[in-house]
């Protein structure tokens, strides 16, 4: 019996199941940790303490929040477009989970090393937009709708520079597999060769996750809560969870592509990987509590007139130098 189980675990399908469970666990823990960290960091940046009373250092705080949201009334506004309204918070999770499958946490810790890993991530991350649009449209709320429309325009605009910034790395590494990209950075991190691509990717990544200064889809002072205005309880928690997981994914990809992923001396690979990722997460949180929000036209101008030409130029130069 035990042997059978071990055998099953050893098989590809078994690995996949264990991986998925692991990923789910990681997603939840990561989101809980990040909400706590966000509030704590914000608190300290704002000359206060942040959550403190609930558990040591307020560490139980996110669990209390999650339980409370779980225990809330399941409320469906009367006028909503039910299929879309119900489906959106679930659908936003698909790209999040799939992205985790290909991210190498360590040299041996990866659910599946797909040889077109980065394509999988980029392709699936587009689904996020779809679910936001569904949420906005299905809510029958004007604020939600404007939030959703903003989100779509923003995500489409910023996906292009994001992709263009990753391409030079793919060219340098000569591979689409994430693990191989990390392996190629054994000596030198790609951020040294491609600093511009790193910056472009990071800015686009912040925009993709709808964080300040690009948090237009949920701009509180304009759109109340944006596309998730009408969501409450657990459904709202799912959007929250997805947002924080997305922040981690953007940071993890940046760490993988530019900062050498799990490569590093002395400490085990996974520690290096998490350190690098969470450092970038910290920067994203830091940005949020420092900057005001950009305006919609400025946001799009910045992408189409600033980032995309720059990314193209960078790609061209890299390609040219590689040929020589």
């Amino acid at each position: 019996m035990v042997n059978d189980l071990l055998k099953l675990a050893g098989s590809d399908a078994g690995k996949m199941v264990i991986g998925l469970v692991g990923v789910l666990l990681f997603v939840v823990v990561n989101a809980l940790l990040l909400t706590w960290a966000e509030r704590k960091i914000a608190g300290h940046m704002q000359r206060r303490i942040g959550p403190k009373e609930v558990g040591p250092f307020g560490l139980i705080q996110p669990i209390a929040d999650a339980l409370k949201l779980l225990g809330k009334e399941i409320l469906t506004p009367a006028k909503v477009d039910k299929p879309l309204y119900y489906l959106a918070p679930t659908l936003i999770f698909v790209p999040v989970l799939v992205s985790f499958i290909v991210i190498p946490f360590d040299a041996s810790l990866q659910v599946a090393d797909i040889n077109v890993g980065i394509l999988v991530i980029l392709a699936f991350s587009s689904i996020t937009i779809l679910s936001i649009l569904m949420a906005g449209w299905g809510s029958e709320n004007k604020y939600s709708l404007i939030g959703a429309i903003r989100s779509v325009a923003q995500n489409i605009a910023y996906e292009i520079p994001m992709l263009l910034a990753l391409l030079p790395v793919v060219m340098l590494a000569n591979s689409l597999s994430l693990r191989e990209i990390v392996e190629k950075q054994q000596g030198l991190w790609f951020v040294v060769i491609q600093p511009l691509a790193f910056i472009i990717y990071f800015i686009a990544g912040v925009a993709e996750t709808n964080r300040t200064p690009f948090d237009l889809p949920e701009a509180e002072s304009e759109l109340v809560a944006g596309y998730h205005t009408e969501y409450s309880g657990m459904r709202f928690a799912l959007f929250f969870l997805a947002e924080y997981t997305n922040i981690f994914i953007v940071s993890a990809i940046a760490a993988t592509f530019f900062l050498g992923g799990y490569q590093g001396p002395v400490l085990p690979g996974i520690v290096w990987f998490l350190l690098k990722s969470y450092l970038l997460v910290f920067v994203i949180i830091w940005l949020r509590w420092t900057y005001p929000r950009v305006r919609f036209d400025q946001l799009l101008n910045f992408a189409w007139k600033g980032l995309i030409p720059l990314a193209f130029l960078n790609l061209l130069i890299t390609g040219g130098l590689l040929k020589i």
Binding site: G43, G50, E53, A225
Partner: peptide, 23 residues
């Protein structure tokens, strides 16, 4: 909710603009 008194210590500092998300 601000620096000196800091409601967030008790976990009550998350002001939600949408009534759907408030308790």
């Amino acid at each position: 909710a601000m620096s000196r008194f800091d409601l967030d210590r008790f976990g009550a500092g998350v002001f939600r603009a949408s009534p759907r998300q408030g308790d």
